[in-house]
Amino acid sequence: MDHFEVFGLPRRLAVDTAELQRKFYELSRRYHPDFHQAAPPEEQVRALEASAGLNAAYRTLRDPIARIEYLVRLEEGRDTKEGATVKPKAPPELLEEMFEIQEALAEAKAGGLDEAGRAALVVQRDRLMARLGDEETRLVGPLSQGWDASQPAERQRVLAAMKEALAIRAYLRTVIDDLNDALGESQEGYVTYRRH
């Protein structure tokens, strides 16, 4: 059963999250191991698996971006590992800027980051954050709607556009992480983007 099927939903990206939560609670009451303590072992195992499957489905579907990543994976017939669906890709219009940032990062790593350099990195970071925001808005907005409205013949094209956007998003997040690291602003022990 895929995550959409768990909730009895069609493979569409528009999801009513309040309804999803209601359904999650309802299904949890059915599957959660708490309510199968007295059952025979095989049934307990089944409940455990169903409950784990439900939790995974809810975690994925309640978040609009994770939902898109999952859909792409599903459409491509890969349903194993969660996480990276696509290879990160630099936004084409920012290639030159990226080059500069990488250089600045290398310098910072080598030890030298003066006040001006720092300020420049902060500006860059904030610009990339804004760009990331745009990419996410596009994914959750027009691209998601595009998928839901598409005819079977158009699906491959929409899927490719979503993959491209996800790849750019992944790239931006990695660079933002690196910038935060270089600026010493990432929280100790908390890698924010890269790993989640």
Partner: peptide, 17 residues
């Protein structure tokens, strides 16, 4: 390689090859 992120509702499972 993180297979189950923190704050994932339990029970939960992950598969890897």
């Amino acid at each position: 390689s993180v297979l189950i992120p923190r704050n994932t509702t339990i029970p939960t499972s992950a598969r890897e090859m």
